[in-house]
Design a protein around this nucleic acid. Sequence first.
DNA 1: TTGAAAGCGGTACCAG
DNA 2: CTGGTACCGCTTTCAA
Lengths: 311, 311
Amino acid sequence: MATIKDLSEITGLGIGTISRYLNGYNVKEKTKDKIETAIAQTGYVRNSVARSMKTGKSMMVAVIVPHLANMFSMRVIESIERVLERHGYSVIISDCGGSAENQLNKLELMKQRMVDGFVLLPLAVSGKRLMQAASGKPLVLIDRLLDVNLFDSVTVNNFEVSYRETKQLLLQGVRRIGIIAGPHDVYTAVERKKGFEKALDEFGIADAYIETGGYNVEDGFKAMKRLLNRSLEGLFISNYELTIGALQAYAQSSQTIKIIGFDSIELSSLINRTITCISQPIEQIGEKAAELLLNRMKDPSRRVENVVINI
Amino acid sequence: MATIKDLSEITGLGIGTISRYLNGYNVKEKTKDKIETAIAQTGYVRNSVARSMKTGKSMMVAVIVPHLANMFSMRVIESIERVLERHGYSVIISDCGGSAENQLNKLELMKQRMVDGFVLLPLAVSGKRLMQAASGKPLVLIDRLLDVNLFDSVTVNNFEVSYRETKQLLLQGVRRIGIIAGPHDVYTAVERKKGFEKALDEFGIADAYIETGGYNVEDGFKAMKRLLNRSLEGLFISNYELTIGALQAYAQSSQTIKIIGFDSIELSSLINRTITCISQPIEQIGEKAAELLLNRMKDPSRRVENVVINI
DNA sequence: TTGAAAGCGGTACCAG
DNA sequence: CTGGTACCGCTTTCAA
């Protein structure tokens, strides 16, 4: 691999001159030509590791998620990457396998890699631990507001929208109602469940059928299988994967249940029995997160910003 | 940020000793204690950028895909990451937006970042250009065999399985048949189309309804809308996203079409009219790719290996 | 406009 | 087992 030094030797120019040219500073036309020839000849590419070493910036951002193979994660990551790459940043990903402990480990690892910032789709941990793990590096949270306003974040109004939609169901006369709620250590799942429960409280319903557990297709399927014995009139499902799974079981049955699903817009039209969808503006969430991160990396002392997108 | 030098000053030990301890070599119990105290005290974390600089290995692997927000990409990336992280590698991702040109740019960028290897879900480019762009760095192809055996690769038998399943349809008496084929510069899409066409040839069918274009949900929906005017008896759909889109349109219609979909196992049970699924072992594909890459990074001169997974 | 030289934070070799 | 030192490839003063 050719280095700047090789170029220096070939052209007879100083090492500093080459570097300056490479960084867009003015050099004489003739030197420019010499350098370019040497680059073409050697196939030189700049070593950004060495560059990072000197500048103290790696131009990398770590995105840490509970699970990569999840519709929400991947669409968020896609939009984050799209925005960040325009600013010269690369995205390094880390799947913490749904474990909060692991999440902290991954953060540590990324810190070693000298990433310039983090985006987290966080699992339940305290703000302090997270703060400590990030050791002051810019970190943006998606889908989770921590107790303390330590971090920039972007969320949707999970609680309100869940409350509102559940209420709609109840206003339609639904009484025997259930929820497939997802994990209890995932913030959004908890918020959605709370919103659901608030609506029930208002209507004096105390005996909802609650299924908690994982957040993927199979969990949804199993939960639905159980719920199909309950002659439900209404059902709230907390994410896309759970909805797919639940609908699989549902499709096999002949019951009619009024279903509300999160992010399930694509699926709703597949099944002949209507379901209600709550759609998050996922691209917008990712873009906003990237934007917040860019802002903070530019100005670490700026005020913490907690963006809530109302849907 | 504390450095190894700080530790050296605090402990009074030499810089080399610290480094040795950090790398797991033997040091006296007492020195070990001193160092550990200093680490705890300063919150020292090793700077892997500096380390890479010296060792010439970044311990990063770039995964470049046409689109991140794609079920296949994401699940492949997930399994790649799972395998690689066990070996100390991080995954840096790059979405080339479906453009072959862009793909080469991204490769260049990743080369600058001194990644130790590449995994590509490649768009149509010649093997030579790719070889040149990778400049000899380990590169594994997923879902594409290049004309020359320059790269390790892992694919499924797209052609055969498509041929076989289409033939099944025809054996059932289907004659008016169509395909939603996806982009013509995506290898798998092309292979699947070829397999489809071979089956048609055998049955002397010359006028299939062919829809080509994008590879996402909306493309599938639009294509299906058009195809619903054709009174088809059978339909082959080349990937997951297209299948979702097509099924959306299909669900609204009252036609009955025998449908074959790729990777659409989760969806098949949603819709009350049966569809046939061709399921790729996506995790296995990712794992195999990671494995091939690890092997090549270990031994760059080993024989090129082209793995075909038969489904 | 250019060249020389001092690091950035590690690793690895050498001598002790 | 330990300390000293020469790099790794680049950026960035400082003089010329």
